[in-house]
Structures are given as structure tokens and as C-alpha cells.
Design a protein around this nucleic acid. Structure first.
Lengths: 202, 202
DNA sequence: ATATTAGCGTAACAGTCGTTGCGCTAATAT
DNA sequence: ATATTAGCGCAACGACTGTTACGCTAATAT
């Protein structure tokens, strides 16, 4: 039975690792081909498996997408906490710039592109199922915590953290679509300065 | 013949208005159903016509989407210039806030959602054809012009305009996905203050 | 007046879609 | 030892996809 039986006696228990590995492999495929036009047969072929692997672990395609998005969300949450520089020593602006460089260099770009695709679809209300990505809200709360640690009052911290995240995401979008590196990074410089102003203790 | 014959003798000339009306009607449908999962038959049915109307005016589906995106881009450019408040009298911050209220109230929301969906797909490189939306770049240049009109030096104007637009788009995305109006509008207040600081003549 | 094209509906094409049922092996709870 | 389930390949279902061919009317350049 596919939808978790939850209390039924199972002769052979599920191996949760299989599902996790499968999800990671699926995400790998999505970073290259996107979610919008996802098709099960090509996906299965890319995984070197049959489509029944997919329909077995996830009842329906919508369920699969929901599971993938949730898994991706969790992964991003984990990476956020693992970001270097939070534990004092570096200014907030420095963290912003380091994050920018890390995101847009090397092979991280495809994942970033996928995340923007997902957020765009989510904002448009085009994602089936009940899933709503929490990345934006989470990131805002996370940065707000960092601001509070710098002595910024609670409500100001929330507002500035939201603004910082929005600007950061917006600049990424701008760069990804226009490719105008000089213009966007000049704006990033201003944002970094702003972030440092916010954390300059009086 | 569908791809503009360009110089061939045509017994009956094309009526460009038909194409424009068709494009507007298509956009109307897209605001409700999105681009990602666009299908020609449901679209044609929504227009009360046959699919051959679509294949006649646009050779292929990808051509249709490209034409729609270009048309939408042009429409947004026109609206940008028609925005009230540019011709002095109102501060930049006031224009930003007026724009926010105008975008997110009433029946403008579906179009905004569509635009974010498109930008997300564009950033992800998932839009077929050679089309690249110029909305972001255009808006940046437009706001930069406004800043220059306030006496802001050229390079600073470009950087701040890019940052302002990015933050604005990011805040819209945040609100559309999380729905957290209080948090996002508190951040908008900060952005409005920033914009006014930039245009305060020394 | 004639030839040609726009404009559009109808019908069919081959391909792809998500999903389901069947069959099999291997693992494990009882 | 046995029953049951996970895990997965294979094959088929009907629905839907973009696209094409064909036919017809109305408009217009010549």
C-alpha cells in the first residue's frame, strides 16, 4: 500500500534511505530540466530505472513533486544553518557577499535556478497540492535572529531581515535574467553597505 | 504563409489588430491559468474559437508563447511610463508605495502573479525560444532616470535603482508566497524611507 | 473579373502523458 | 516455515498533446 499504512502490520518494513536517495537523485534531474515540464518517463530513464519506482514510492505525480519540494526545503534549511560566518567574527555584509559568491560560482548555479523557478511558480499559485515553500519566511526569520544578536531591536530586525532577503533574491533574479553582472553587483555593494550599517553598534 | 513573407504580394493584407486582440485575450487566459502548463485546446476553447486560430496566427506553440511574452513586455513598458507621480510633486518613496498598493489590490494581482511566474521561468532558463524578458532591465533603467532627475550621480543612480527594483520584486514574491502582510509591509516601509533618503537633495 | 490570401472550423495524425494491473524476487515479521 | 510486503520491471489503458491537411467563405490586390 502506498499512502503510509500507519499501524498496519508490515511483513517487510520500508527502508527510508531508499526514498531519500531517490529524492536526491530526482532533485539532481530537476536542477538540469526544471519542474514545470517534468515528465515521469524521462525522469525514470535518467535515473536508470522504470517509472514504477516512482509510482511505488510516491502514489501520484503531484505527491512526488510535493515530496521533492519538501525535501528540497529541508535541505536548504540545513544549508542555511551550516553557512559559515554566522558565529561572530564576520559582519553581516561580509556574510551576504560570501553567500553571493558561493551561490553564483561553480556548479551551484543550476540549483539556484531551480529554486527561483519554484518560487516563481509558488508565487503564481501554480504549484499543485497543499505545499507552500517556506524558504522565504525561514530565511527572513534566520537573518532576523542574526540582527537581534547584533543588538537590533526585535521589530526593526524583522523588517530589515525581510528587506535584506527580498533584495538579495531580487538581485539574483535580475542577474540570472539579464546577466548584467556589473550593474547588479554594483547594487549588491550598496546592499552590503546597508547590512553593515544595520549592524554597526552605536 | 505564417512566418512573415516580407515582400511577397499578398492578395488580402493581414489585419494587425486581430493579432493584438488575440494576444490580449490569450494573456487574459494566462493570468488565470499560467504559462507553465499551457495547452492549446483548452486555451482555444476559453477563447471560444478553434485551435487553428492559434496555429494560423502563430506557427507553433513556442512561437505563440514568445509572441505573448513580447506583447506582455511591451504592455508593461507602456504602463510603467503611464505611472502617475513621476512628473515631480511626489517623492520616489511615495511612488513606490502607490505602486505597491496599486499592484496588490483589486484585480491586478493575477497579472502580477503571472509576471512572477514568467520571471521565475526566465531566471531558470526554462523559457523556450530566444525570448528574454527585459522587464527587469527596463525598470532599472527607468528608475535610474528618475534618480538622475533628482540630482543623483549617474553610477549611484544605476546601482540604487537596481537595488530598489530588486527589493521591490523580492518583497512582492515574499508576500505572494508567505502571505505575511504585516512583516512584508514593515519591510516596505523601510524601503520607502531608503528611497526618500536617496532623493533628498543635500 | 480573377487570383490569391486571410481567417477559421473540422478532422485526423502520431506521439506522449499519468496511471494501473500483473508478475516476479528478496526481505522480514510472525 | 509461512505469509506478507517492499521493490521494481513490463505492458497496456485511455486521455491528451502539438501539429498538419483540407475545406470553405470573405476580403482585396491586380
Amino acid at each position: 500500500m502506498n499512502p503510509d499504512p500507519e499501524g498496519v502490520v508490515m511483513a517487510r518494513p520500508r527502508d527510508p534511505q531508499r526514498r531519500t536517495e531517490l529524492l536526491d537523485a530526482i532533485i539532481g534531474h530537476l536542477t538540469a530540466h526544471g519542474v514545470a515540464g517534468l515528465s515521469l518517463r524521462p525522469l525514470a530513464q535518467a535515473l536508470g530505472r522504470s517509472t514504477s519506482v516512482l509510482t511505488h514510492h510516491f502514489a501520484t505525480k503531484d505527491d512526488l513533486i510535493a515530496a521533492v519540494l519538501e525535501h528540497l526545503d529541508q535541505r536548504q534549511r540545513d544549508r542555511l544553518q551550516a553557512l559559515p560566518g554566522w558565529e561572530e567574527g564576520r559582519s553581516l555584509g561580509a556574510v551576504v557577499r560570501a553567500s553571493w559568491d558561493w551561490h553564483l560560482t561553480g556548479d551551484h548555479l543550476p540549483l539556484i535556478r531551480l529554486l527561483h523557478e519554484i518560487e516563481g511558480l509558488a508565487a503564481a499559485g501554480r504549484l499543485t497540492g497543499a505545499y507552500v515553500p517556506t524558504m522565504l519566511g525561514d530565511r527572513a526569520e534566520f537573518v532576523a535572529e542574526a540582527l537581534r544578536a547584533h543588538g537590533v531591536p526585535d521589530d526593526v530586525a524583522r523588517a530589515n531581515a525581510t528587506l535584506l532577503n527580498a533584495a538579495y533574491a531580487g538581485l539574483q533574479l535580475d542577474y540570472l535574467t539579464t546577466g548584467d553582472k556589473a550593474r547588479v553587483e554594483a547594487a549588491l555593494d550598496r546592499l552590503v553597505d546597508l547590512a553593515d550599517e544595520w549592524t554597526r553598534r552605536p
